[in-house]
Simulated scan of single mutants.
Amino acid sequence: MSTDFQQARAALGARLRELRAEATGRDLALRLGWTQSKVSKLETGRQTATATDIKAWAEATGEPAAADELLARLQGLESHSRSWRRQLRAGHRPVQDALSAEYERSTDLRAWEGAMVVGLLQTPDYARAIFTRYAELHKSPRDIENAVRARMQRQDMLYEPGRTFHILMWEAALHAGVCPPSVLRAQLDRLIGVIGLDTVRLGIIPFGAAVAIPPANGFWLYDDRLAIVEDWHAELWLDDRDSLTVYRRVWDTLAHSAVYGSHANRLIGRARAHLDLA
């Protein structure tokens, strides 16, 4: 979680505490029907308030007019950190639609993924396995088929002129058993076909390659305006210049360790041969 996000959440908590005025945390908790610990966590920035929490707080403190201000603060905070718990309340399809909008707005896209094949290059069966795993993790609604369809529709952009996709993956992504072996075989075949596309430059960092920085969590860069970084609990949507500069530097640094073309093809073939021997 970014320092900017923590500071913004702490500032929101301080404003909530200010509105509480003379009431004790215990009194406010009783009015709201909450635990006292929830009031404390919201005020100290250890928990992020929901829009419903914000409105209830404004009413309970006798400051209903403050709700709009608080909601604006919350919206600004969430523009940077979007928790999976909140994003997936309606399932995975809305998340995919939001990402598709960002792809549509972009012409030069860069991705890094160390743990699995990037979504834009996934087969339907591989995507289905990934969505199922994450639905289980986050206990989210199972709209798996709708999410798969949305992801496959987005892949049409790979064949549209005017966009370039620079994609980096660690060799580990070729071996990760996140799906049945038969599905992974088909996925690896798909990657071999992608190498010939003129809109895609696929680089793979081999096991044992010297890397200037440790490969870490996956992210996408959309032109020079947005970075979307994935973590277990949330996505970070970053549009400030300093953050974008760091993530572009990370991408460029990793790219120096990658192989392309026939060399990448051999790594994919090696992963497929390993599956055939298993």
Rank of each mutant, 00 (worst) to 15 (best):
F5G: 09
Q7C: 13
A8L: 14
A8Y: 12
R9S: 03
A11S: 14
A11W: 11
A11L: 15
R15D: 11
L16S: 06
E18L: 15
R26G: 09
D27E: 15
L42K: 00
T48L: 12
T48Y: 10
D53A: 03
A56Y: 00
A58C: 00
G62Y: 07
G62A: 07
P64A: 03
R73T: 12
L74N: 12
R82A: 09
Q87A: 08
L88V: 05
G91C: 03
V95Y: 11
A98W: 01
A101M: 14
E102W: 10
E102T: 14
T107A: 14
D108Y: 13
L121D: 09
Q122M: 06
R133F: 10
E136G: 03
A150D: 07
Q153D: 15
Q155S: 01
I167Y: 04
E171A: 08
A176V: 14
G177A: 15
C179T: 14
C179W: 14
Q187H: 06
L191V: 01
I192A: 15
V194P: 02
G203C: 06
I204M: 01
G208I: 02
P215E: 04
L221S: 08
D224H: 12
I228M: 07
D231I: 13
D231M: 12
W237Q: 03
D240V: 09
S243Y: 07
S257T: 03
V259R: 04
G269Q: 13
R270F: 14
L275D: 12
L277P: 00
